[in-house]
Design a protein around this nucleic acid. Structure first.
Lengths: 244, 244
DNA sequence: AATAAATATGTACTTATGACACATTAATTT
DNA sequence: AAATTAATGTGTCATAAGTACATATTTATT
């Protein structure tokens, strides 16, 4: 290895034009959704020969003139047509051999979107929701990325009011509990779950009832506005997607 | 922005030789130490004109043929002469304007080392330990990186047996408590602290006593070997440092 | 031998967690 | 219209964890 590589960050000058340091950087989004009492993730069929038949996460190269978060937000908008989504950086994967076409380091984000609320036209033929539980293999190291993001989501879930981004604005406590159960892949006691949620004081009782259930309807709640947290991005900083 | 940038990751071919995608990748290490009842961090005086007089974290560019973790491990070995250290990835910082010399995305790691155990020859004149509490400003966005890593360390501390990497192998409960207090920047009740540590069942009573204290000596403990966790790296995968 | 300073330990109170059962409501069936 | 079904909604008790707090003991020092 050449001596001149051994620089401090501070010594780099106009590094972005030195050809030698050519590592590509991408973002990959683990886009979680919730439907039919199952946690879903949005995947695309890999068209890379090495991974024929396998699905992969949605990602793109980071452009030289956009922030990391902007890049992942752009991927989201491109692929789902949705803005105003929850987005959180999780981990950066940089193994040498992780991409067959060359050196690509990728920063993984997970995002939570309400599958039903926006009528999401999926901007690609091969874009589909998959049940997280059923996923065995993915292209590249994307299974590891998915697992890491799922673990992070599970960590967050009982501590922070994030999962509400997977639900419509109004929801019943049953729906909320089913969502927790889907994410954590465990059964929860109804009474203890309600107690826990009540203590957190995240919810407003809307004094409305469900009207689309074939049984006794439950009360509807919504998240208190002060707990709503999506992305820290300004919308204006996200460039509109190029057409596909 | 050129249309051809709008590729899926899967479509990239030999990306590492396309000049256009020139974003540099670095790692920055928040190297924590513990001395004199204070949490310290290893910093270097920035020699970049924009930040004259300011200190910065230790980092380096990632080489095209090394993993991210390998790169940060290399920085550690280069700067401290120590291997077998605890190392954990925290976050990747990729704002456009974060580096004055060009586009550099950096992945931040924190590491924990026992300042006293190895007799660390610091491999640079301008390399010094600083009290974390006293740090007001750093070069680049390094203050934000430090804060993020400190928060992560604080999160980990009560859950996982990581802080033992900051202590010598044998330590008293008083030393351990002082360390927790330094990291969390709060006072802890001695009796409750000991109860909590006892419950975790992390420690082995060595049936030895301190012998260097000017008061009643306390019992010495060490971490149970099964909880020792440093880096997942194989040593052989880390190239030796170039000489300075 | 007395003193000072730290170690070592236990109890009572409060709060959180986990297991568990019954009355109520609304839709559906008879 | 009455009975049935299936869900909602709520409370108690036992156990575990967290918090506040005081006294006896040990060693070094005076």
């Amino acid at each position: 290895m050449a001596k001149e590589l051994n620089l401090k960050t501070a010594e780099i000058e106009k590094i972005s034009h030195i050809d030698y340091f050519n590592i590509a950087i991408s973002v990959d989004c683990v886009i979680f959704g919730y439907d039919n009492k199952e946690l879903k993730v949005l995947l695309i069929k890999s068209d890379l020969e090495d991974f024929s038949g396998l699905y992969s996460l949605l990602g793109d190269l980071v452009r030289p003139d956009e922030d990391l978060e902007t890049a992942s937000y752009r991927v989201l908008i491109d692929r789902t047509g949705m803005d105003d989504v929850y987005l959180e950086q999780v981990h950066t994967f940089g193994s040498i051999g992780r991409h067959p076409s060359g050196r690509v380091i990728t920063t993984a984000y997970y995002s939570l979107i309400d599958v039903k609320h926006h009528k999401m036209q999926l901007n690609h033929n091969e874009l589909h929701w998959h049940s997280v539980k059923d996923i065995q293999r993915l292209a590249f190291d994307h299974k590891a990325i998915l697992d890491t993001c799922l673990n992070r989501l599970r960590q967050q879930v009982m501590e922070h009011p994030v999962v509400f981004n997977l639900l419509p604005e109004k929801f019943s406590l049953r729906e909320l509990q089913e969502l927790y159960q889907a994410i954590l892949d465990i059964d929860l006691d109804r009474r203890n779950f309600r107690k826990k949620i009540a203590i957190k004081d995240w919810l407003v009782d809307l004094n409305e009832m469900e009207d689309d259930v074939p049984h006794r309807p439950g009360k509807l709640y919504k998240l208190k506005p002060e707990f709503r947290k999506k992305t820290t991005l300004q919308k204006s900083s996200v460039r509109q997607a190029d057409a596909y």
